[in-house]
Simulated assay, not measured.
Amino acid sequence: MTTKQFQSQRTCAAGPLVAIGGDKGGVGKSFQARVLAWQLHSRGIPLALCDGDERNAHLERHYSSQLNTVRFDARSEAGWTSMFNHLDNVPADHAVVVDLPAGAGCMLHQEAARLIANEDLGMPTIHVWVATPGEDSVRLFRDLMAIAPASRTAFVTNKHIDESLGRFDIWMNSRTRAEFVAEGGLEVALPKLPERPHDMIANQRLPFPSERPANWLRGDWFTFLSFKAAVEREQASLIRLIQEMC
């Protein structure tokens, strides 16, 4: 395919690039990426996955058997070049979920011009920010707002960290939140997956199941279905935004 043909294909019909970050380690970025891949795939949305954490690639570990998945180094310019180059091989109607590692926020700023150029080829960017309860997360998110339109950005509060979300009062009372919501930003929660089904999925390196696995007891399956219902309820606005752009 020539560059001209590729540009024409992308401009006619393109899914979004969904960049999942948060800068802090251990806040649930990869879990959110897996949840999003599961939700979109279960709705029949064509997907490609890019795992930016070369050392601990959760998307590749859990979804490479189901979906087109590549790894790249999101902490380097060369890694981002390889990711952008890979988009030439992704069908134009696919959404692309990109899982970013801790500390990749500075690279998002450095790659802002190329993300805009990618949008010029017909692939808009949706930013998903998985937050911690502290002040640093709010400050770093404010930095992201300089390059990410609020109407295409989701702020995620992880209920695994605090199921009541009471510890997120710094965010709830911040000027940053008020401005973000006023500009059309999305707030979603990431429900907590109880320990037993979480560990069974992790130990077997499974994607999230669409049917009850043969070795799951009934109670564990019911627990998982409750988690699934909570995800669909809590993240409906984000799923809807991505669907509208596919």
Rank of each mutant, 00 (worst) to 15 (best):
V96W: 00
V96M: 01
V97P: 02
V98S: 00
D99A: 07
L100R: 04
L100F: 02
A102V: 14
A102G: 15
G103V: 06
G105P: 00
C106Q: 13
E111R: 13
R114Q: 11
N118F: 05
N118I: 05
N118W: 09
E119K: 13
E119V: 09
E119F: 07
E119C: 11
D120C: 09
M123E: 10
M123L: 12
M123A: 14
M123N: 08
I126Q: 02
V130E: 13
A131F: 03
A131N: 07
G134L: 02
E135Q: 12
L140F: 12
F141G: 01
L144F: 06
A146V: 11
A150S: 09
R152F: 06
V156W: 04
T157L: 10
T157H: 14
D162A: 12
S164N: 14
G166S: 15
D169G: 14
D169I: 06
I170Q: 15
W171H: 12
R177L: 15
A178T: 08
E179H: 12
V181I: 13
G184D: 00
G185A: 10
A189L: 09
K192G: 13
L193D: 05
P194D: 11
P197D: 08
H198F: 15
D199G: 03
R205Q: 06
P209V: 09
S210C: 14
E211M: 06
R212Y: 03
D220L: 12
W221R: 05
T223Q: 15
L225I: 05
F227M: 09
F227G: 09
A229R: 13
V231E: 02
